[in-house]
């Protein structure tokens, strides 16, 4: 066997893993490539020519940037509300023992275990039957987004809290910190990465949601709804610009977090 063959044999699983990662990344490469596309016709799915024009004028397709801004506003608001409510719930679940705790656990888990089409259609049924059928829009989308982000926030913050050493708080109390001081000086800073992760998760869930939003949006158009609408007619390359930009921003965020973590670890050791 050649040296290369032996390497493959020894690291078979790792190689397989990389192949699967390639599968995960193939469409993203296409999105990046297509953001530089100069399509010949309006219904073109092929790469016809290179241009940076799309990047210079991302708002050219009518309504695209309005849709992005609607999605950003809903995403930010939903993130703030869901993160606040979900963090409170996570504290109750991990730090307190009360009657109905396991039932509450199930209750929080259920929305994550329901298909989006069911969540979306039941909300629509509620809005219609309570007379809000004609007023679907920004606020009904926001209500829906907070609802489905909430469970994900609880689970994320809960995991961080559960993995925390409660002796640190006991030590603070032993050193005569009162409950309030202990919370803000010890507990909160330790849980904060979990809250931040939950907020990021909420934002990306909200920004990306289509199925639930589409049922409860009325005439309001979010970014995914804009993409859906244009997929039926023509796909402006600027959509790929927005997709690539979002991806790069998130990547920078993740890399910065990872670098920060490594630096903290180095200074500690």
């Amino acid at each position: 066997m050649t040296r290369f063959g032996r390497f493959i044999a020894r690291n078979f699983v790792l190689v397989l893993g990389f192949v699967v990662l390639l599968y995960l990344f193939a469409p993203i490469v296409v999105v990046m490539l297509m953001s530089f596309n100069a399509p010949k016709s309006r219904l073109s799915y092929t790469f016809d020519g290179f241009t940076v024009d799309n990047w210079l004028h991302p708002c050219r397709p009518f309504g695209l940037c309005d849709a992005v801004s609607t999605s950003l506003r809903i995403g930010l608001l939903a993130t703030v509300v869901a993160t606040a409510l979900g963090t409170l719930m996570a504290f109750a679940m991990v730090r307190h023992r009360f009657r109905g705790r396991s039932a509450t656990n199930l209750f929080i888990f259920l929305p994550m275990a329901s298909p989006e089409i069911v969540l979306g259609s039941s909300l629509l049924a509620l809005f219609v039957s309570s007379g809000f059928g004609g007023r679907l829009g920004f606020w009904t989308i926001l209500i829906a987004h907070v609802m489905f982000c909430l469970s994900f926030v609880v689970v994320t913050v809960k995991a961080r809290l559960a993995g925390m050493d409660s002796r640190l708080e006991q030590a603070a109390m032993d050193l005569y910190a009162n409950e309030w001081q202990t919370f803000w000086r010890v507990t909160f800073p330790l849980v904060f990465p979990g809250i931040l992760a939950a907020a990021l998760l909420s934002f990306s869930l909200s920004f990306d949601d289509f199925i639930i939003t589409n049922l409860n949006a009325g005439t309001t158009v979010t970014f995914p709804m804009y993409v859906w609408g244009s997929a039926q007619r023509d796909i402006p390359p600027q959509i790929n610009v927005i997709g690539t930009a979002m991806f790069l921003l998130a990547l920078i965020f993740v890399l910065a977090g990872e670098l920060g973590r490594r630096r903290r670890e180095r200074t500690r050791s």
Partner: peptide, 16 residues
Amino acid sequence: LVIAPFFTSFLIRTLS
């Protein structure tokens, strides 16, 4: 890298 694809919209990835 496993999480990264999430950051490009679900619909855009399906279109690609």
